[in-house]
């Protein structure tokens, strides 16, 4: 065990995978000599050389497409999007090439696309988005959203070993803000398994990514007011651990979903619909969502704070739902 940041845990996972398996290579913009925009791959080129840490031209379609091509050849590419927002330039490759290959042809595409995403960095509409729902809505892709350093490494290793395309959402705000214990060596966090981060009997709160941390703070505050919140970190959005969701709702009878992505068409709607369909008998109140406002991510700190869910708004939703 070592204590490290979320970012260091990602680096550790990549290094572990590359040392274990010579088929694993990295491709992206500025990742080699420069070490990546966020320095996740700092020093990698010295250890692994330029053929395994490929500095690519500025061309997301070519980067993702070539990773797919290498994957069908039996390699295990890990792509770095410099910012998740730029994945739109590679959309055809992700949703029409990688995602549909197994269903159509029986060809497996073991590619991981690292998606540095999310807000809170005052980076505005093109460097802050949470676009996980696009990919959750695409059959054939797996989508993971680690919230802790331990899961950041474990889900990355699980994703690299998986024979399917995996969208790995790494939250930029967590990179250097979160530290935690990370097991040494090789281990996997299973894709598709949620983790209960805090137990509680009054209400279930389902969330992922950065919001796990805000939800825990809000839950702590609520506990001071006598409300015990069960915080479930979904960790994977596709496949999603629906059993864990149903089990938690069965325990508490109330469900609150919190995500940083904008509300309409977000993953929260899917979770709410699942609970309505499958857990109706357990429910003792409406399923409630707390999410960002339906706008692009604004640049001004004042506006971004108004846009994002915060501990305050989550705590208010907890209070209201608990009282229902």
């Amino acid at each position: 065990m070592a204590v490290m940041t979320y970012l260091e845990a990602i680096s550790a996972g990549l290094r572990e995978a590359m040392r274990r398996d010579e088929r694993v290579f990295l491709i992206g913009e500025d990742i080699g000599v420069f070490g990546g925009a966020f320095k996740v791959t700092k020093g990698f080129i010295d250890e692994f050389g330029p053929q395994r840490v490929v500095d690519a031209p500025l061309a997301e379609t070519a980067i993702v497409g070539s990773a797919i091509g290498a994957a069908v050849m039996g390699m295990r590419p890990v792509v770095e999007m410099q910012f998740a927002d730029f994945v739109t330039d590679a959309f055809t490759q992700v949703v029409n090439m990688a995602a549909k290959f197994h269903y159509r042809n029986d060809w497996c595409v073991p590619v991981v696309i690292r998606m540095p995403y999310g807000g809170g960095l005052r980076a505005g509409p093109y460097h802050s988005s949470c676009m996980e729902a696009w990919f959750v809505h695409t059959p054939g892709l797996k989508v993971v959203t680690p919230a802790t350093p331990e899961d950041a490494k474990g889900l990355l290793l699980a994703g690299i070993r998986d024979d399917n395309p995996v969208m790995y959402f790494e939250h930029k705000h967590l990179y250097r803000h979160v530290r935690g214990e990370v097991p040494d060596g090789y281990y996997e966090t299973p894709i598709g398994e949620a983790a209960v981060r805090r137990q509680g009997s009054h209400l279930s709160l389902f969330t992922y990514g950065w919001m796990v941390h805000l939800a825990l703070q809000a839950a702590h505050r609520a506990a001071g007011e006598g409300i015990e919140v069960e915080v479930v970190d979904l960790r994977s959005l596709a496949p999603m651990d629906k059993e864990a969701i149903a089990a938690s709702v069965a325990r508490t009878g109330k469900a609150l979903v919190v995500h940083e992505a904008t509300k309409t068409g977000g993953v929260g709607g899917e979770i709410a619909a699942f609970i309505a369909e499958e857990c109706f008998e357990s429910l003792d109140g409406p399923v409630v969502r707390v999410a960002s406002v339906d706008t692009p991510v604004p640049h001004s700190p004042v506006l971004e704070d108004a846009f994002l869910p915060g501990v305050e708004s989550i705590a208010a939703a907890i209070r209201k739902l608990a009282a229902y």
Binding site: G65, G69, A70, Q93
Partner: peptide, 10 residues
């Protein structure tokens, strides 16, 4: 075409 590039790269 990009996929063909990746096949060649591998």
């Amino acid at each position: 075409l990009p996929v063909a590039c990746g096949m060649a790269m591998a």
